[in-house]
């Protein structure tokens, strides 16, 4: 793979002959590709880009009754209000830390689990474990939060009963700020690890079993096979997933956090998404403000994606652009 890429890079560094004439020829040669791409491109134009006038609401003081054209324009005021509000540092810190936890503690796990599943000999066992581990993804956060309440409460929750029996103490998982981030990350791990393996298993299914056989003949053990065959095979997928995930770096997911935050842990629990909800929903619809905050998150995400893509390309991967 990287050999072809190296060749391409070399080729593009040489002086290029003028290509306008050959450009039209290339378009004509690729006419089927354009046809195939047409429905998709139409979709993006009609359903993704056309409504984007809505982003301009961030520069207005939007009044639903007056509509987009009737609402007052206030320039960057929403943004300055947001950045200078006393909540901003807290929100940023909480969101950022949760994002980091997510990246470091959650992101590798589906890969690890996929590799483990891939190494299990018994096909039947593998299938059973796969099916079980992807079930949690289907429970909505409402139910997960509710079950966590029941399990972790200090008043008769089963987890605390066990801890009490072992140590004579009870842990206030649900209300102590110390435990909040762990709880959230733990919930994400529980819910999404199994589901996250699917994509890596799909990538692993593309690995030629003959490579494994050849390695075995050469005397490689399990770890060596993992290191020199399996991992390189899914390396591209891992990088792609990582870059794409960075695009949503500041998105923590509203429902989950909202359900687990209470007055006692709000200091560490309030993130951009819950803040947007409280400002923008129900009676207090401050749509402009929330659009501005959302825009901020998007810009950061986009910047991260570009940077990550650059870095990936420099180290030999193909990146995503």
């Amino acid at each position: 793979m990287s050999q072809t890429r190296a060749k391409e890079r070399l080729a593009s560094m040489l002086p290029q002959p003028p290509r306008i004439g050959s450009l039209w020829k290339r378009i004509a040669a690729n006419k089927w590709l354009y046809l195939l791409a047409l429905p998709g491109v139409l979709y993006f134009v009609l359903f993704r880009y056309t409504p984007m006038w809505g982003l301009l609401i961030a520069f207005q003081k939007y009044n639903a009754a007056l509509g987009f054209l009737g609402s007052e324009w206030i320039g960057l005021k929403n943004f300055t209000d947001f950045f200078s509000s006393p909540d901003f540092t807290n929100l940023f810190r909480n969101t950022f830390i949760l994002a980091i936890y997510n990246l470091f503690f959650f992101f590798p796990l589906p890969i690890v689990l996929a590799l483990m599943l891939n190494s299990v000999r018994s096909y039947r066992y593998k299938r059973i474990v796969q099916t079980v581990t992807y079930m949690p993804h289907f429970l909505s956060w409402v139910i997960i939060a509710s079950i966590c309440q029941v399990m972790f409460t200090t008043e008769g929750g089963i987890i605390n009963d066990i801890i009490f029996a072992l140590s004579g103490k009870k842990l206030d998982f649900l209300t102590n700020p110390r435990f909040f981030r762990g709880m959230i990350t733990g919930q994400v791990i529980w819910r999404e690890t199994g589901w996250g393996t699917i994509i890596f298993l799909a990538a692993l299914s593309g690995v030629d079993p003959q490579l494994y056989d050849a390695a075995h003949v050469d005397g490689a053990n399990g770890w060596q096979r993992l290191w020199s065959i399996t991992l390189p095979a899914i390396f591209g997928t891992i990088i792609t997933m990582l870059i794409l995930r960075l695009g949503h770096f500041l998105d923590t997911g509203f429902s989950q956090i909202f359900l687990m935050v209470n007055p006692l842990n709000r200091d560490v629990g309030e993130v951009f998404d819950t803040y947007i909800y409280r400002q923008g929903i129900k009676e207090y619809s401050k749509l402009s403000y929330t659009t501005a905050v959302g825009m901020f998150k998007s810009v950061v995400g986009l910047a991260l994606v570009f940077c990550a893509d650059r870095i990936a390309k420099k180290s030999g991967s193909s990146g995503i652009l």
Partner: peptide, 19 residues
């Protein structure tokens, strides 16, 4: 239109706009 403990801005805006 629902009301919580207070009149909502959307409602008030719409009323004031003469809707």
């Amino acid at each position: 239109l629902e009301n919580g403990n207070k009149r909502g801005t959307v409602e008030v805006d719409a009323v004031r706009a003469g809707v």
